[in-house]
Design a protein around this nucleic acid. Structure first.
Length: 585
RNA sequence: CGGGGUGUAGCGCAGCCUGGCAGCGCACCGCGUUUGGGACGCGGUGGUCGGCGGUUCGAAUCCGCCCACCCCGACCA
């Protein structure tokens, strides 16, 4: 590609609303342009890089038996009603009517379509296992898109779906993806770790998220450096602190004026926060088919901990949780700031399991300005549900080995789910096994967003001057600059390099050297060649790798061979990093 | 959805408080000089000042409503 012909420009200044490096650099280098919140155009070089990423995904998924198909982006809503997700999923899914008035949805994922295909196509165990995938547009009307391509509303995703006759088959395909995904991220220059995760709206029995660890990430992870335990905070387990057994004291009401927070309360009564109970009111939405029901939830954790809403929602099997409004709290007669589990009715009471072991806590008295001391679970109140609903945090004890965990931020670059028969049961996707018995097809689903992966690759591979593409996903492999007196050799070299099968961006513009060098650094192609009167006098063409400082002169007749060798060496370096990762649940 | 912020040329910004010709830098076009790390001179092009309404002789500027975008949170992959 000649830069004099390329659509789009580099920018000297990043758009003011771009804050993270990948967003700024992808915009400045001319790879992406924003159309709306979470909606981006991929410009020629951005689209090429995406193409490279998607080709890597194809290679890896084909290698584990995947067959590429293409499923529609518009679905009849009936399918989603059959699995129930039409009712379960909120505003994130966009719905509309076709001209006949039928409910339609914009695809946010494709489990329904695959399960539908399975019920139509699969009749016999002889047709299993199968693995299908596609690379296609998803629309998720996210409440808060952010950080350029990291979190968007429209994006392309590689999603694969495994179909199996039994659990063992699912496990095999799941593990195949587990490794294939590491291969993909490594080959794209993005280091990732797999963590146990919440199954969320997908449902199913097991899930891993692949996280690229970076401060710009929005997920919080808990990591144990000692034994390797890793989990998204949403579900991270931890060993609750040991509690000394005590005889239950007498329940007493004490005056505590103007202490509505745990901090104030602990300070006022001079007790550690761990000796208090924290009440958090949330409004839960439950859905059953088309019916929806809201219930106020009174959740209780120890004062030194926070309620984990994901754990709580899972314990409740609730569709949605949100903080309760003051009037909703008042409606059951609770007093905010002094709310008490004692004598509570009208709300669903969910208590963290640690609370049941912790004697003589301080809790609200449900009266403005008063608390109870010596509150004991069992004696003074009962819960509707006792479960682990507390959030792990920096320093929490690892659930496996007990050592202190640390937290890190991360971006989810991929996820894998064991879905089981949630979808195939709902749609009646069955087959006959060897004994002629009807069985339900078992599914798994596996996704990677290509644009987010591109952004993470940019986030990981850049310096203060610009991007530094891994050659595997670089829009072009070679950036050829023709400076003064080098136009003729440049043209010839451009032709020769391309004839040798290399992907070349040729800066043939009538610009000053400074602009060309700076643009080359900004765009960040791995191999840079500069040809000019000066380089010719020095014996040929200047050769430089983007990630190294060293420059050298290569004789004109050796350039193609040297570039080919450099390309192979760079590819080999990446290939060397692709290693087998032990499977961890 | 809650909190905060920003909308003025393709990009970055000033002007707004105190109403009176819509500006600056970069980019872009022409001519000339330059040419290995974001050159210089001269001359140009480009604007419903986010939108609608109001106040006023007069609104980018004051008032009201709306919209869009960004950040934090809620939420989500």
């Amino acid at each position: 590609m000649k830069m004099s012909h390329m659509f789009g420009n580099t920018l000297r200044d990043a758009p003011a609303d771009a804050e993270v490096a990948s967003h700024q650099l992808l915009a400045r280098a001319g790879l992406i342009r924003q159309l709306g919140a979470g909606i981006y155009t991929l410009m020629p070089m951005g689209w090429r890089a995406i193409g490279k990423i998607e080709d890597i995904m194809r290679e890896e998924i084909n290698a584990i038996g995947g067959q590429e198909i293409y499923m529609p982006v518009v679905h009849p809503a009936d399918l989603w009603k059959e699995t129930g997700r039409w009712y379960k999923i909120g505003g994130e899914m966009s719905r509309f009517h076709d001209r006949k008035g039928h409910d339609m949805v914009l695809a946010m994922t494709h489990e329904e379509v695959v399960a539908d295909l399975a019920r139509r196509e699969i009749q016999s165990y002889k047709q299993l296992p199968r693995l299908v995938y596609h690379i296609q547009t998803k629309w998720r009307d996210d409440a808060r898109p952010r950080a350029g391509l990291i979190r968007v509303r429209e994006f392309t995703m590689k999603d694969s779906y495994s179909l199996d006759a039994d659990e063992a088959g699912l496990d095999k395909q799941y593990r195949a993806h587990y490794q294939a995904y590491f291969n993909i991220f490594t080959r794209c220059g993005v280091p990732a770790v797999a963590v146990a995760s919440d199954v969320g709206m997908m449902g199913g029995s097991m899930a891993h998220e692949y996280m690229y660890l970076t401060p710009v990430g929005e997920d919080t992870l808990l990591l144990c450096d000692k034994c390797g335990y890793r989990a998204n905070r949403q579900i991270a387990l931890f060993q609750k602190p040991q509690v000394q057994a005590e005889d239950a004291g007498e329940l007493q009401k004490v005056e505590t004026p103007n202490v509505a927070t745990i901090e104030d309360l602990a300070a006022f009564l001079k007790v550690p926060k761990a000796r208090t109970a924290k009440a958090v009111f949330l409004m839960a939405t439950f859905s059953e088919g088309e019916r929806e029901e809201q219930k106020l939830v009174f959740s209780v954790v120890r004062g030194d901990m926070d309620v984990n809403e994901t754990k709580l929602a899972n314990a409740l099997k609730a569709k949605e949780l949100r903080p309760a409004h003051p009037e909703e709290i008042a409606a059951i007669g609770a007093v905010a700031g002094y709310a008490s589990p004692v004598g509570q009715n009208g709300a669903l009471v969910v208590v963290d399991d640690l609370i049941t072991l912790s004697p003589n806590l301080v809790a609200g008295a449900n009266q403005e300005g008063y608390h109870y001391t010596n509150v004991n679970y069992g004696r003074d109140y009962q819960a509707d549900i006792v479960a682990d609903i507390a959030s792990a945090e920096e320093g929490s004890a690892c659930p496996k080995c007990g050592s202190a965990m640390r937290t890190s931020r991360g971006v989810e670059v991929g996820n894998i789910f064991k879905l089981g028969t949630d979808y195939t049961d709902a749609l009646g996707a069955t087959f006959l096994d060897e004994s002629g018995k009807e069985q339900t097809v078992i599914m798994g689903s596996y996704g990677i967003g290509s644009g987010r992966l591109l952004a993470c690759a940019a986030e990981e591979n850049h310096d203060d001057k610009g991007l530094i593409w891994p050659i595997s996903i670089a829009p072009y492999q070679v950036h050829l600059l023709a400076l003064r007196g080098g136009a003729e050799q440049g043209e010839a070299l451009y032709a020769d390099l391309q004839a040798a099968g290399l992907e070349v961006l040729f800066d043939d513009r009538d610009e000053s050297p400074g602009i060309k060098f700076n643009d080359a650094d900004l765009i960040g192609l791995p191999i840079r060649l500069t040809v000019s009167e000066r380089s010719m006098k020095e014996g040929g063409v200047e050769f430089k790798l983007r990630h190294e400082d060293e420059k050298r002169i290569v004789a004109l007749e050796d350039v193609v061979a040297q570039v080919l060798a450099a390309k192979e060496a760079l590819l080999a370096e990446i290939a060397k990093k692709v290693v087998t990762v032990p499977f961890e649940e």
